[in-house]
Amino acid sequence: MSHPLFQAAEVLDMAIEIERMGLAFYRGCTAARASEQAAEVFEFAAEQEQQHIELFARMKRDLDQYTVPESYPGETLAYVRGLIGDTIFATVDEAACSAEEMPDVDSAIDKAVRLERQSIAFYSGLREVVRPSEHDAIDEVIAEEHRHIRRLVALQHELGGGD
């Protein structure tokens, strides 16, 4: 597709929603307290998600804040959830369910990385449906998620896990 369906600000709304879900996931994992080390990893990841939410909110403020007027409050968010529900949120739910039975830090980080990769795939798809002039904002979101993955992977190695 070469024509804009969405404004970057709306993609940022979606990103914020995804990050919120991620935050809930990592907080859930932390609460499960599988091990001291795992708790640290998940606290770190949760902190990262929190920072992302703030970053994306700031980026959105810097853009022209376009929103299509809603016919009832929460309509846009309902569509955002409808759109990303099957891809990201399903992963989040699945991951959250198994967090308690996941004492192994290594596999927990694997799951977190998978979650982040799926977010990137989702943002890359959305990149095609915003104006070219707004690609920078989406690219920054994607770059931030890549940095997040690198940190998670580095942490995994530090802890003696990974491949």
Partner: peptide, 14 residues
């Protein structure tokens, strides 16, 4: 439908 709906529907149909 309402204005919000169109683009999300367009994306699904495409």
């Amino acid at each position: 439908g309402p204005p919000v709906m169109y683009r999300y529907v367009a994306m699904e149909l495409l």
